[in-house]
Design a protein around this nucleic acid. Structure first.
Lengths: 117, 117
DNA sequence: CGGCATCCCGTCCGATACTG
DNA sequence: CAGTATCGGACGGGATGCCG
């Protein structure tokens, strides 16, 4: 373990990419959700293939849990785990920063011009 | 602008990828730095091509500033901007989470097992 | 010193179609 | 309902070499 290694790298391994942060954020604030429910509620329209893949990654990493009711028709729920809940600390910060900057401007570049001026 | 859009998405557009978060983090805590100095000090060994590209993206987004002294041999410095400094809020959270989880375990999977048990 | 050119690979992301 | 199969494009990341 390197001495000066930042925590940023480790955290990025988890939330990097377009979707995992959003999925975690959703499951942090809702009850366990079913596959298609999650699919509908995530803004930005995620395809079932991508959602399936991202859910698998999060499950493999122990951040969420897959509950298969083994019914016909199938019913599967995804729930945040205790470990997953700990991500709320930085996801909340990220959300606040993003919202702040969305409120202030329509674009990041414009934002930058205003602040840096 | 959508109503329920999360700030997460916006924030991820900036720090996503392996390097931009680390570069920002470095420049947040140091004086303006030269290209090769930055290259040497970033852990994980970044190639000059990649560093160059990432620095350009950050500059285009107004998060850092490129100062060319127009000397021979070339001297160029990169400095965090006021806008870039605002990212400290969430980068700090991300760093803390990562360090916390690095301290507790050698791997994320083991970490997950411990917490979720 | 601070890059850019070239080539390459693996991953991310997506549309469409299909299935138990 | 909850996915998988297939195909394909875009992007991130890297090795090597060259240049003013």
């Amino acid at each position: 373990m390197k001495e000066n290694e930042t925590g940023i790298e480790i955290t990025l391994e988890i939330v990097c990419g377009k979707w995992k942060g959003l999925i975690l954020w959703k499951l942090l604030h809702e009850k366990p959700m079913r596959f298609n429910q999650l699919r509908r509620e995530i803004d930005g329209e995620i395809s079932s293939r991508i959602l399936s893949r991202e859910l698998r990654k999060l499950t493999d990493d122990g951040l969420i849990e897959r509950i298969d009711y083994e019914m016909v028709p199938p019913k599967v729920e995804y729930r945040i785990t205790p470990y997953g809940k700990t991500t709320a600390s930085f996801l909340t910060s990220m959300n606040e920063w993003g919202l702040e900057h969305k409120r202030m401007s329509t674009s990041r570049k414009e934002m930058a011009r205003l602040i840096n001026k």
